[in-house]
Computed example of a mutant assay.
Amino acid sequence: MFSGAVGPLGIGVATLWLSLIVLLPLAALAVHSVSDGFGTFWSAITAPAAVATLRITVGVSLVVAAINAVMGTLIAWVLVRDEFRGKKFVNALIDLPFALPTIVASIVLLSLYGPQSPIGLQLNATQPGLVVALAFVTLPFVVRAVQPVLLETDREVEEAAASLGAGNFTIFRRVVLPALAPAILSGTGLAFARAIGEYGSIVLIGGNIPYETQVASQYIQQQIEIDRPANAAAVSVVLLLIAFLVLFVLRAVANRGVRRQEEDR
């Protein structure tokens, strides 16, 4: 009988590939970040410019993740629960940020929100401009995480709640949201992780102004250009740790929610 297990050989191949593609490069980055000693590493990540760029990066990314959590869920709901003209086109449009080179997105956003904005809205070299650019490239994460869960949601439970007199908001809060929460958290975590490391979409519209709009990826490039690769590696390690911590916490919360749902059943 086919069990679906790949056996020791499959596990070995998967582990080897993961090591070559992910673990070894990350280990090399970590080693390089402390190549000049832990004192230099600490100085690199606590320098005023580094602290400012990390603060801006994390702050803007948190705002973008929160926006995506709400708007991504809403868009997924519309795509699953509503019928309208052009639905297939909109559904395909969601994945465009995955396929479009991010530098192209930056050019488009600069044309729309730059000094020559055709709509009279100038966001160039501002933190709201960063939010718009990062929201564009991270949009699909929450939508694609929530969509399949919505498709599998049992509509009969919602109908039963409605028959008992529950309003739409109550049904969403007490019935639908608990089922969607793990997917929303997972998609939000991925959106945050993508946002803190993004470069292409903000390279033009962001302005790269130190202490104002310079994000970590731009600061890292700057350190490499002035021949300070150890500093660049140190800030990169901090970004990796932040992303890993956020993903770990959100995944743990999501798993706990799933276990609670299974226990309630």
Rank of each mutant, 00 (worst) to 15 (best):
M1W: 10
F2A: 09
G4A: 08
G4N: 08
V6H: 03
G7S: 05
L9A: 14
I11A: 15
V13C: 01
V13Y: 01
T15K: 00
L16M: 11
L20N: 02
V22S: 04
L26P: 00
A28Q: 13
L29F: 09
A30I: 07
A30E: 04
V31R: 09
S33P: 02
D36T: 01
G39E: 05
S43G: 11
A47V: 00
P48K: 07
A50E: 05
A52F: 09
L54W: 07
L54Y: 08
L54G: 04
T57E: 06
T57Q: 07
V58N: 09
G59E: 14
V60L: 03
S61C: 05
S61I: 04
L62Y: 03
A65R: 04
A65T: 03
V80I: 14
D82E: 10
G86Q: 09
K88N: 11
L93V: 13
L93M: 15
L93Y: 14
I94E: 05
L100S: 01
T102N: 12
V108A: 15
V108F: 15
L109A: 09
L112G: 07
G114N: 06
Q116P: 00
S117H: 05
L121K: 03
N124V: 11
A125W: 01
G129Y: 04
L130F: 12
V131D: 10
V131I: 15
L134R: 08
A135P: 00
A135W: 10
V137H: 08
V137P: 02
V137F: 11
T138C: 15
P140K: 06
P140I: 14
F141D: 07
A145R: 03
V146S: 13
R155F: 01
V157D: 03
V157T: 10
E158P: 08
A160I: 14
A162Q: 10
A162V: 03
L164V: 05
A166Y: 06
G167S: 14
F169M: 11
F169K: 01
F172A: 12
F172R: 06
F172P: 02
R174W: 01
R174D: 13
R174E: 13
V175K: 03
V175Q: 12
V176N: 05
L177K: 02
P178A: 10
L180G: 07
A181W: 14
P182V: 12
A183G: 06
L190F: 14
A193M: 03
R194Q: 13
R194M: 06
A195V: 01
Y199Q: 02
G200R: 02
G200F: 06
S201M: 12
V203S: 13
L204N: 08
I205G: 07
G206W: 11
N208P: 04
P210Y: 07
E212Q: 14
Q214G: 04
Q214C: 05
V215N: 11
S217F: 02
S217L: 04
Y219T: 08
I220Y: 09
Q221Y: 13
E225A: 13
E225Y: 02
R228C: 00
A232I: 01
A234Y: 03
S236M: 04
V237K: 00
V238H: 05
V238L: 12
L239W: 11
F244W: 13
F244G: 09
L245I: 15
F248W: 12
V249E: 04
V253N: 06
R256Y: 10
R256Q: 13
V258P: 00
D264K: 09
D264E: 11
R265A: 08
